[in-house]
């Protein structure tokens, strides 16, 4: 990929991120922050490539730590986002489900 193409990708991706977020209601800010936290877990593929190409013990050690941390980012980000979003239901959807417990 040439420098200028990379620059175009960077610019377009930056605008995309801005557009996607700009109309978000406040109630979704935390799940969305968590969701975007999950998305940068894609660093995992880079860490895999880095460790996959590592030769010296030092490179392997750092690469190992990198993959471990990146996998934590991706998996942890997914689990907590999914748990949070699981709870977002409207009153209509809720009535279809189990009736709220009464004491």
């Amino acid at each position: 990929m040439t420098g200028i193409v990379a620059l175009y990708i960077f610019m377009l991706a930056a605008f995309t991120g801005y557009e996607v977020i700009s109309r978000v209601p406040v109630i979704l800010h935390t799940p969305l922050m968590s969701g975007s936290n999950f998305v940068h877990g894609i660093v995992l593929v880079g860490a895999m490539v880095a460790l996959g190409g590592a030769q010296t013990p030092l490179e392997k050690t750092i690469g190992f730590i990198g993959v471990l941390l990146a996998a934590g980012n991706a998996v942890g980000g997914y689990v907590v986002t999914e748990r949070m979003l699981e709870m977002f239901k409207s009153s209509g959807a809720r009535r279809k489900g189990a009736a709220p417990e009464k004491h």
Partner: peptide
């Protein structure tokens, strides 16, 4: 990585 990272970078800055 470029696209996902940059999208999160700009979205996160806005947030």
């Amino acid at each position: 990585m470029i696209i996902a990272g940059t999208v999160v970078g700009s979205a996160g800055t806005l947030l």
